[in-house]
Amino acid sequence: MRIACPFCGERELGEFTYLGDAAPKRPMAFAADGAEQPEAQDLFFDYVYLRDNVAGDMTERWYHGGGCRSWLTVTRNTTTHEIKAVHAAPGAGAQKRTKAGATS
């Protein structure tokens, strides 16, 4: 599999590390007023453990540790490995969007 890193260009799978589903968002432990969220533990339980087993397009986190150390959000078909989009994570360098690699 080859992933088109927005910073480095198309690179081979071995340069990347897979994390998993990009959908879960880290919950807030404290409310906006600073009070502790009573249900924080339940929210974090879902965030840490509950994942969908997607057959088809999935947005995933990948880390380009063998390259620019950017975290990427990759849209990949889990049944064909076709990569449809690669975005840099919001905090990864300048934000830019690339098309999927030509041969993905």
Partner: peptide, 25 residues
């Protein structure tokens, strides 16, 4: 050393991109 750097970058780039902070190994 390696995994922690990956973890730190994840926190910086994905969890808290609003923070003005840079990491260098």
């Amino acid at each position: 050393a390696g995994p922690a750097m990956q973890h730190l970058e994840y926190c910086r780039q994905v969890l808290w991109p609003e923070l003005d902070v840079q990491l260098t190994s």
